[in-house]
């Protein structure tokens, strides 16, 4: 919280006799100033949004999926709008871990929020290599291990759809990575609970869910798929009920903290995930529609707690 904001809050508390609300939550041993984080791949490295919001208002930023080598991603077109949602097939375009550490990290390391790196790969060795390099960065307190990207041919979701494979990659990364390890799960499975339990067993400190739902859309005029890759990942408000359900199921099945995401665009959406058991949430696609939406959600959570006389947001986490 910046000084001006603290002052404003203090003033309001004095004038209106409001409750001081604690929005701070914990993921493993990391304290977030509030539960609102940004989802990987929807917020760049944070810098893209600095014109619009004070990044220090956020609980956390999860930066773009990072791989061992620089990746070009899939060919254009790699986006299609669908009812209350969109399909993407970006395919992990990123600068690669070395450039990230050398060029991007120095630019973003002093942003006053918790910065996580989403770690991706095509092989266990690649995941470990990236995690090891990120482990060296002082101001990155954790990683989000992406075993759920639906848009890459090798690896990605392949690791996240099988409990044994998921456990294997988590165990390997756990050996080389010493800080908070969040594992991002795919919804494209028969039982997300089985995967969540497997990665918990393998040493994950937290799980985040859901990554995008595998989908497809066809341009009937041109008689061909909209995406160059035919299929892609569905995100946006349309996936939210699926995500809330999965977060609720997983939160009841594991001991480690759950981070919820999938279609969150308002404070009420965020509250659904918190009540379903998420200790923190990530805002994704909504950043594209309104680059200030994350701060509006933080303010909305504060307002909700005021209205309901809740002085600690943790009191409503997992009440369902």
């Amino acid at each position: 919280m910046n000084r001006a904001h603290t002052k404003k809050v203090t003033l309001l508390v004095l004038i209106f006799n409001l409750t001081v609300v604690n929005l701070s939550t914990k993921i493993h041993n990391i304290t977030l100033k509030n539960p609102v984080m940004t989802a990987s791949g929807t917020f760049g490295y944070g810098e893209e949004f600095a014109d619009f919001i004070d990044l220090s208002r956020l609980g956390g930023i999860i930066v773009k999926g990072t791989t061992g080598e620089r990746r070009q991603g899939n060919p254009y077109p790699r986006m299609a709008e669908t009812p209350s949602g969109m399909l993407n097939a970006v395919g992990l375009q990123n600068v690669g871990v070395e450039t990230f550490c050398r060029e991007v990290y120095p630019r973003i390391k002093d942003i006053d929020t918790k910065i996580f790196v989403n770690v991706s790969g095509s092989s266990i060795e690649e995941y470990c290599h990236v995690a090891e390099m990120i482990d060296e960065l002082d101001n990155i307190p954790g990683i989000e291990l992406n075993i759920s990207c639906p848009n890459v041919k090798k690896g990605g979701m392949g690791f996240g759809t099988n409990p044994d494979m998921a456990a294997q990659v988590v165990r390997a990364v756990r050996q080389v990575y010493h800080k908070t390890l969040i594992v991002k799960l795919t919804p494209n499975v028969t039982s997300v609970v089985d995967i969540a339990k497997a990665v918990e067993q393998a040493g994950a400190d937290s799980v985040s869910l859901i990554n995008t739902l595998l989908g497809m859309a066809i341009d009937v005029e041109r008689q061909r798929p909209y995406l160059s890759t035919i299929t892609g990942g569905l995100s946006g408000p349309c996936v939210k009920p699926v995500a809330v359900r999965m977060v609720w199921q997983v939160a009841h099945a594991v001991q480690i903290p759950v981070v919820g995401l999938g279609g969150i665009s308002t404070a009420a959406d965020a509250l659904e995930f918190l009540m379903a058991g998420a200790k923190a949430i990530e805002v994704g696609t909504a950043n594209f529609l309104d680059p200030t939406v994350t701060v509006k959600i933080v303010e909305g959570l504060e307002d909700y707690c005021q209205r309901h006389h809740i002085d600690d947001i943790n009191d409503i986490i997992g009440i369902i």
Binding site: G41, F49, R78, M79, M86, N88, V90, N287, F288, P291
Partner: peptide, 10 residues
């Protein structure tokens, strides 16, 4: 989608 270089769709 985003118009500001975040989503990498275009």
């Amino acid at each position: 989608a985003c118009g500001i270089g975040a989503c990498l769709c275009c």
